[in-house]
């Protein structure tokens, strides 16, 4: 199949970017979107041009490292998928495909399609952990946790931190990402000790990074590759309001 690509090219974080058009011919419809970009880069190298920078790691839809805005939607036109799980067969022969980085003011473009998502790491560092003595593994079932609580915590823990929720939100809110970790730890007894401190610290960190307010459009859940539920956001609000009312920090 043949496609025309319009790819965002930007030299560094300070320069102004622009779209560049490339034509790719004889693509295998079964190649993934990232493999198609690999083909583009090989072509560019042969032409003695600078290849397009983009992030990728596992290419199995697990790690959350890849992430591009394809035709105006983060990770393309399929719900609940990562960019690497988009395949060329999901496009028509002769299509023009527009590729941009994930956008948010907290996501600085490093080069081309590669963005700096370390703001999410800093939110995690603010409270996305439990302080426990490490040592030998505790006995199984020494800490009883209900089946439903374990399931709920696991559903929240499934977040891979890819940033799709932020890029798909019209407010660039990091509410889904931040709330997933808060909910996971608030559901489990291990997280109880730092429960109030954690939610306040993580919300403060989220605000400090310049992410917007959640206005409950629920677009994030629709695009999330892990189908993280917006119920997590409700739980974060509950935890935050509770911490405010209890006055604990």
């Amino acid at each position: 199949m043949n496609v025309t690509l319009k790819v965002w090219r930007q030299k560094n974080s300070k320069s102004k970017g622009h779209f560049e058009t490339y034509k790719l011919n004889d693509l295998n419809p079964d190649m993934s979107f990232l493999e198609m970009l690999d083909v583009l880069n090989e072509q560019l190298i042969h032409e003695d041009k600078i290849p397009v920078e983009f992030d990728s790691d596992c290419r199995e839809g697990i790690c959350g490292q890849c992430g591009l805005t394809i035709n105006g939607r983060p990770n393309g036109h399929h719900h609940h998928t990562t960019t690497c799980q988009m395949h060329m067969r999901h496009f028509e022969d002769g299509d023009t495909i527009l590729v941009e980085p994930l956008r948010a003011s907290a996501f600085t473009v490093i080069k081309d399609l590669k963005v700096d998502r370390s703001a999410m790491d800093r939110i995690m560092q603010a409270g996305g952990f439990v302080s426990v003595h490490t040592g030998s593994a505790p006995d199984a079932n020494s800490l009883p946790i209900g089946k439903m609580d374990a399931e709920d915590a696991f559903d929240s823990a499934a977040c891979i931190g890819c940033g799709t929720c932020i890029a798909t939100c019209k407010n660039s809110s990091a509410a889904l990402f931040t709330s997933a970790k808060i909910t996971q730890l608030a559901t489990l007894p291990q997280g109880e000790i730092e429960r109030e401190k954690r939610v306040v610290a993580m919300v403060d960190a989220m605000d400090a990074e310049g992410f917007g307010s959640c206005t409950n459009t629920e677009a994030c859940e629709m695009e999330c590759p892990q189908e993280i539920s917006v119920t997590n956001i409700a739980r974060m609000n509950f935890e935050y309001n509770r911490a405010l009312l209890l006055g604990k920090k």
Partner: peptide, 13 residues
């Protein structure tokens, strides 16, 4: 929120 969105997408779907 507009500030958080930054320059936004060139094509927004």
């Amino acid at each position: 929120n507009r500030k958080s969105n930054g320059q936004g997408l060139k094509v927004d779907k």
